[in-house]
Design a binder for these strands. Structure first.
Lengths: 198, 198
DNA sequence: TGGGCATGCTACCCGGCGGTAGGCTTTCAA
DNA sequence: TTGAAAGCCTACCGCCGGGTAGCATGCCCA
């Protein structure tokens, strides 16, 4: 009970911080701003986070973990490589769009992270890239894909999806699922795979 | 002569600012840092730029203009739509990689730009998106491309290229031209166009 | 009813940095 | 040789904002 309340308060701070960092930037947002939005005061935040930079890391890292988890889960599914790549991409797309603000903040404010937080996240990203590259290589070996350069293709696909944080509007015409499927199909085309019937 | 010297000094300031903003972030770099790197002092910078924010705009805007120019030039070339898209993408890719630091700074520090500078740049980006979308629509009408959703495909292609600022290493194995060609081919695949022999 | 602990607030500190005022040096024209 | 203007520097201001010390409030348990 005690712990749940604590965790809830922590979550509320994070929520509000995400909103403000997303709208005004990390350096354009003061801790007083966040506190005011929550109807509390600055020292309250310091009972949950050691510093402003700590707060930043706390809102970036889990999102990167979710991204990695999505592609890992997709790539570990049963089915052909084509199907697995499709699901990995669709899943990753959904994470990016669901956590659009967190993703945006991470990419914009990377330079403000502490050395250690940055190192942790870089490790996750490395695993992410390898998972994608490996999937592509596997597809090439299975003769399902046709790409001259797996590393480059993996980066291109990753970029195509990640970039969505810059233009996606939650109130847009497509649902999250639709977006995931569309991106999945575009990715399959890029690697020269046969289309999956949707 | 007078003007050339003035322009040269301005360029030097911009160069150094790009280097430092890229490495440490806009807010992580002080004007004293830039001045020190140039072997001058802070007031010197103020004889060439009205403010730190002004400096930021001066190093972002021309790069966005170059990006737009590249796709406009490609799309206005003689040849089939497929060829024109290919050249537009290759050209854009080369701009992104050549001006990697400026592109990175722009995307990261957008929130620090003045309202007016931001409005100017947004106008350029709108033109950019339209140019790409129009090219895709034209290709569909000419039966050279096969995409269900031109807007989405344009955003996906734009993202795939733009994203390169996050991973490109100038000392990497591929030259600028190679990268442009690779990206051009990937883009053609995404829109279902017949490959261009390289 | 009262003691003590948890919780969050008031009030403050202080360092960093964008921006500026005014002076010194160098250059060039007459 | 001198006047003056251009160019750059020294020295400073003032605010903003991250972070903290110590107090008030209220709740729980005896």
């Amino acid at each position: 009970m005690r712990d749940e309340i604590l965790a809830y308060k922590r979550e509320r701070i994070l929520e509000e911080a995400v909103k403000l960092f997303y709208a005004r930037g990390f350096n354009g947002t003061t801790l007083d701003d966040i506190a005011a939005e929550l109807g509390v005061t600055k020292p309250f935040i310091y009972t949950h986070f050691r510093s402003k930079v700590d707060l930043l890391a706390a809102l970036c890292k889990p999102t990167i973990e979710m991204s990695l988890a999505a592609v890992l889960q997709g790539s570990a599914m049963p089915g052909t490589v084509t199907e697995r790549l499709y699901h990995a991409i669709a899943g990753f797309t959904k994470v990016v769009l669901q956590r659009q603000a967190n993703i945006a903040i991470y990419f914009r404010e990377e330079k403000n992270l502490s050395k250690t937080a940055l190192a942790d996240i870089n490790e996750l990203r490395k695993q992410f890239d390898h998972t994608l590259s490996d999937l592509l290589r596997e597809g090439v070996e299975a003769k399902e894909f046709d790409v001259p350069d797996e590393r480059l293709a993996a980066l291109a696909i990753g970029g195509m999806i990640s970039w969505a944080y810059t233009w996606h509007r939650p109130a847009g015409r497509l649902t999250l699922d639709d977006m995931g499927k569309e991106m999945g199909h575009l990715a399959l085309r890029m690697v020269g795979a046969r289309a999956i019937p949707s």
